[in-house]
Amino acid sequence: MNASASALPPSALNSANEALTLRLPSSLQLKQQLPLSNGLNQQVALHRQAVRAILNGEDSRLLVIVGPCSIHDPQSALEYASKLALLAKDVSNEMLLVMRAYVEKPRTTVGWKGLAYDPHLDGTDDMAAGLTLSRELMLEMLRLGLPVATELLQPMAASYFDDLLSWVAVGARTTESQIHREMASGLSMPVGFKNGTDGGAAIAVDAMRSAAHPHRHFGVDSQGHPAIIQTAGNPDTHLVLRGGHHGPNYDRDSLTKINAELNRLKIPTRIMVDCSHANSGKDPLRQPAVFNDVLEQRLRGDHSLIGMMLESHLFEGCQPLSAPLRYGVSVTDGCLGFGATEQLLTTAAQRLRQVRS
């Protein structure tokens, strides 16, 4: 199915005030069309368990979610993934590198919503093609041996690739949403909740508590029918600090306060720092400074710091979504180039190796 919203038949519009509709394939149909092999299914299970082991302190490696702010070009995304797969092997004793494969983008007002929504980058919003392309890309990344991560923004889209993911983010704008907390409670992989845009952790902490409990909620089953979804609760959640309106929140004082609150509520103290967004002042070239500061705190004994997140593409910076596009450059937030990313992670791995030896 490859139709776009612009190709809707007149019958799809009943009146000027009603929404246009176009039926999508069910998640079951897409999973049957692009199945996960037994071998890759076992690989995903092992990657999920590896992430859980880091969260639970059973694995001393650093968890690093790294990759483009968003994927807009399959070719450059797979080239990046190929490079990352080689780097992941080199640092595998010190770090677990997880490919950031973000195919949905939250918007404050309007703008490009991501590969799953508008894969042709032309406003036609061919979501059927977008979901197919997103699943194809994630499968290719798995074949390279990489764990895959994404931000789940639209709960109805989650079921199209939830079986491929080893880690999931719930973003700052949606952490407060009951719908996303219910969704997270039924996911089979670890979930990181980002702090709210105000920089405070209270909303994310509430989300973690909610997601840990069972829920019954409205949803859609694998065949596309409305359903009551019953979840078991997700014990594998953690906090992601991304800063806020008043600046960064990865400093020692902020972490001390947040850990005290987590301890008070008897929530495991496991924190990931997003080195981008407000923590870097939205300057992608400041991400290494944030990363190294957090690494230093971890090396000094703060074991609540289980990982970091980096926005990284083949080449640094960002560009407007207009032709001609530069290859391997982000069309959303600015990214660190792969060369600088490789140097940063290789040096960090060396420091971690020295501490362990």
Rank of each mutant, 00 (worst) to 15 (best):
V191C: 05
G39F: 15
Q223A: 13
S92A: 15
G339M: 11
M183N: 02
K282I: 07
D118E: 11
R216L: 04
K113H: 03
L255E: 00
D90R: 14
L314P: 09
V98I: 15
V191E: 06
H180R: 00
R286H: 12
R252D: 09
M99T: 04
A349V: 13
R173L: 02
G123M: 07
L30Y: 05
K194G: 02
S177N: 11
L295Q: 12
T124D: 10
L164I: 05
S37W: 10
G186P: 01
F193D: 13
E316L: 09
G199N: 08
V290D: 01
T124E: 10
V331W: 08
L265K: 04
P284F: 12
W112I: 01
L153W: 08
M127D: 03
N292R: 13
P10R: 05
D163S: 14
R23Y: 11
L305N: 03
A204L: 07
L336E: 04
L152P: 01
I258E: 00
L24H: 13
M272S: 10
A128R: 13
L305S: 03
R242H: 02
P106L: 05
V148Q: 09
L28T: 13
K113E: 01
E261V: 14
G196L: 09
G67N: 07
K105M: 09
R326M: 09
L241K: 00
Q230W: 03
Y117V: 12
G339C: 09
A260W: 06
A212N: 08
G233N: 10
